[in-house]
Design a protein around this nucleic acid. Structure first.
Lengths: 333, 333
DNA sequence: TACAGTCCTGTAAGCGCTCACAGTTTCTCC
DNA sequence: GGAGAAACTGTGAGCGCTTACAGGACTGTA
């Protein structure tokens, strides 16, 4: 058993000053003489004093912590290095502050209850929400708590006041424009779920690029981001539009399904049909052929969400952000 | 702005009892009449009261949170779904308790300082440490703090009192025995860094299996877990032991490098040379051919670490755990 | 009826810190 | 040298909760 850590009062005694002065030194407030400051600092280091966060929180009404809540149990969150990347980004910014990171996986009912408890017990000063589903209950909970909240991604039904999102539309458009520049004209698309912001945005990006180039945007199959739906979509496309020479697929998982179908049908990639995916999942570089895809700046999203939240906590008014994506060129185009 | 949340005192007033009684109800202590209890519960739900954690922490000297510190910036931690899996496991157990999860990435100097601060300011009741490097400073910091600490993995230099680890040796042995059972006899190995517990254990597992089967354990190349070192190791092995018919590789990354070299040298896998890796990284199922490998129970490690820590916090004396691995059979054997 | 046990309840003293307030000292500038 | 401002410091009242401790109200027993 370790002995009880030293308190501010003991520091004050040792330094021969009052507790108020010690507190001022700790929070480097003004109005402290060099002499007192030095005495206090000496006492602090001799005693190995570190302020007790609970006591400080109680007095200041500030928690010194933010919570990152991850809502969906969507496998998309776990495929990929999504998790690691977001957290790396969040951590990088938090390291520059005194804020601690609390993590809540709120996929289950229980997890949601825990999240609610954190909010209501005021265990955190702010919230970062990765809620990929539409109408996610966490979103409302955070709002009702009144805590500053930053969203990662948007839903179609409601644009949160503060969010960071990837440029789904722009990314899709760039991907399709890349296909066009490579001389493809009969470009099809397999969409994701259109009732998600990402799915909708990527589809819009496709249409935008095609229309602007004066090409037909009518070669469309609808999927749900899953590998199986990608395969099914590809089959439909081959039936309906045997002339297609490229396909923009709204997720890598679907693209993988599509590649299988193309192979089964004797289509060579990219010679006969070029394929572009979206997300740059880890396996994208190991497909046959390696998949050209759109990479989302996930770590940057984590970073920017955190920056935004920190600003909010400082009373500033940040502006929401849409981050650019990268087109990763590989052998499938 | 939301109004200040209700306090315990307001609950007491509304319920017509004293604060002591309310506190007893909240912590469901004994000696509360049904009448008071009901009155208090009614008041609580009417007011939407939730105890303030900071105040409670201050009074009880318990924080209601544990910290998960991830030390290494080792890419191995980020390849894979390591991150997501560990956290999923940790979260699953934590959901059954009232403990919150604080996450610290302590790869940088700054991160380490933050970790120290958490320990010293007593912001957490216990520590889970994923410190993959030998002699990791975090390990000592945690120990000095006196907080209950559970380690994920071991280092060679020092076995922590409480840890959860995967059975590296047993996993390796099972992999090699699988090769033997398939009729291979000239089995080589490419080791990982032997000064890590994992590298050492896997090598021991290889030797154990070979010796027990009466086979030579002398076909050895040493690597450092990286893809490049796997390729280099494979080259050496082919030169020194052209008769080899199988190779147990201590990491998937190295196995991928080895597969490349085998292909370049016209060796067919698995016909000429069977290959087994270790870790089951996401890409292992997409290699050519798909890689047979040893899967570590990462989520289970997270779960067991957390269980162990919870027991420790309850004053129980848990015992350290070595979790079994799984052999994932694919086309490379 | 008296007396010890049990239960229940209220009271109040902390937990370790911050911060307004008031008091004291030191400057600054005529 | 003195008035007023500025800088410094100590004091003490909280922040919202827990937890002895001290009763008071019952119960059962002699």
């Amino acid at each position: 058993m370790t002995t009880r850590p030293p308190t501010l009062e003991e520091v004050a005694q040792r330094a021969g000053v009052s507790t108020g002065t010690v507190s001022r030194v700790i929070n480097n407030a003004r109005h402290v003489s060099d002499k007192s400051r030095r005495a206090v600092e000496k006492a602090i280091s001799e005693l190995g004093y570190v302020p007790n966060t609970a006591a400080r929180s109680l007095a200041t009404q500030r928690r010194g912590a933010v919570v990152l809540a991850i809502s969906s149990d969507d496998p998309a969150l776990f495929a990929n290095l999504f998790f690691a990347e977001v957290i790396t980004g969040v951590n990088a910014v938090l390291e520059e502050t005194d804020l601690q990171l609390m993590l809540v996986l709120a996929a289950s009912e229980r997890g949601r209850a825990r999240f609610a408890k954190i909010l209501q017990s005021r265990s955190a000063d702010g919230v970062m929400l990765l809620a990929l589903k539409e109408n996610d209950p966490l979103s409302k909970m955070a709002e009702e708590s009144g805590l500053p909240t930053v969203h990662g991604g948007r839903s179609l039904d409601r644009t949160p006041q503060w969010y960071v999102d990837a440029d789904n539309r722009g990314g899709a458009r760039a991907a399709v424009e890349h296909l066009i520049a490579a001389g493809r004209h009969n470009i099809a698309t397999i969409t994701g779920e259109l009732d998600t912001h990402a799915g909708h945005g990527r589809f819009m990006g496709y249409r935008e690029a095609m229309v602007l180039a004066g090409l037909s945007d009518q070669r469309v199959a609808h999927g749900d981001f899953s590998e199986a739906s990608g395969a099914a979509g590809m089959k439909l496309l081959l039936d309906d539009h045997p002339d297609l020479d490229a396909v923009f697929v709204a997720s890598d998982a679907m693209a993988i399904g599509a590649l299988d179908v193309l192979r089964e049908n004797g289509k060579r990639v990219p010679e006969d049909v070029a394929v572009v995916g979206f997300n740059d999942v880890v396996t994208a570089r190991n497909t046959q052929p390696a998949l050209t895809t759109v990479r989302q700046p996930i770590e940057a999203m984590g970073r920017e969400m955190t920056r935004m939240l920190v600003r909010l906590l400082n009373g500033e008014q940040p502006t929401s952000l849409i981050l650019p994506t990268d087109l990763v060129l590989r052998a499938s185009t």
